[in-house]
Design a protein around this nucleic acid. Structure first.
Lengths: 206, 206
DNA sequence: GTCATCATGTAAGCCGTTACATGATTGC
DNA sequence: GCAATCATGTAACGGCTTACATGATGAC
């Protein structure tokens, strides 16, 4: 999951750890807040495995490329000096996805994590980054989710109103309804995917 | 969390591990399926701490109490022989809540687990067992949840439509709506709690 | 007598967290 | 120069899962 988040975000643009953490918070909202204690070790691991690599500081966030002198620290200082305004932050390490990392991302997006606890989070992550998937694979992901939700729903409906006191029952009902809405949502996503009309950029999703 | 589930279920009636696992699945539905690898160690831990204790086999599931001979295995066999029908299963250990366990349950139900990841699960568990709480404490639990959800919602609304491509945005929107519904649900629960009319047994919750 | 199910347990490991420690840069 | 924030990192630990091992019972 952590890997998926990191690779997915780096696919869009190079980032450093601190920023990465913030983005995960924005993308997954309340669903997940990663901690530095897991993030930084993960970054080093991914770098060791060749999935990500550091980028030269001055290439980071500015559209105009600046010729390097060979000294990293020197270049950084120079780049800062050249602009009068808000300099980039300091010793941060900006990472970028390598081809190996791309492959790894595809793999993580594809592989069947069903049956795992924490289905919700995993699917949310996958959905957030499924734009990097081929349309076919994307539909497959959505269909898979749909069938999982449909199963869950029918199981819940077979159980009726649930057991326990009114609190437990209310919980059960509320969850069942939530599942139903999740299902409808996923079905709408699938339809949007299938219907070529809604594929135009800027089309609003319900 | 595991402890909460165990103590909450045992509060209602004595059960053995295997059955406990099934009940958690029924109560929490898709939210959580515990595994034996965590359940049994937890049971032993709770027994060691005096929160739960084993019950005599024949007292387990039958209304008519049968005098014990002193030999557990003997009593079990005897009890089985006395009935012609479906005998109880074998070497299962049936546990019951002790006063210490009750206190522990109250404590777990009460203490502020906000800020923790996995808020959802924890609240779901607490709600499922909040029938064992005093009305005041119950309302407090609900109010606490309400304020957490309200915060979350307003933060989401301040962010607008969310970042990223249409998948990420759709996820964001869907989650925001889910939060809104959670909030309405909790508010309804609070109102039902406050209104003395709806406290009659058998009253239907919307 | 053997298979499926019920039932309990252990060992290893994963994936993350908390708490802590440290350093760079900017704003005042 | 001092505080706030940005930024990176490490160590210890926690809770749960998976995979494995074992045994009892009932159905056939």
């Amino acid at each position: 999951m952590l890997e998926l988040a990191i690779l997915g975000l780096l696919k869009e643009q190079p980032l450093h750890g601190y920023e990465l953490k913030k983005r995960v918070g924005e993308t997954l909202g309340t669903l997940w807040g990663i901690s530095y204690g897991s993030l930084y070790p993960a970054l080093r691991r991914l770098e060791r495995d060749g999935a990500i690599e550091g980028v030269e500081p001055e290439a980071t966030a500015f559209t105009a490329p600046i010729p390097a002198t060979g000294s990293l620290a020197g270049d950084l200082a120079a780049a800062r000096a050249r602009r009068g305004t808000k300099p980039s932050r300091r010793t941060r390490k900006v990472y970028r996805l390598t081809p190996i990392g791309e492959a790894r991302l595809q793999q993580l997006l594809l592989d069947d994590a069903s049956g795992t606890a924490d289905d919700e989070r995993t699917f949310a992550m996958k959905l957030a980054f499924c734009g990097h998937l081929e349309p076919t694979a994307r539909v497959e992901l959505l269909e898979h989710r749909r069938s999982a939700l449909a199963d869950r729903l029918s199981r819940a409906q077979r159980l009726g109103t649930g057991r326990g006191d009114r609190y437990a029952r209310s919980l059960f009902e509320h969850r069942t309804q939530a599942t139903q809405r999740d299902l409808e949502w996923v079905e709408a996503l699938i339809e949007a995917e299938t219907d070529p009309n809604s594929h135009r950029e800027g089309a609003a999703a319900s």
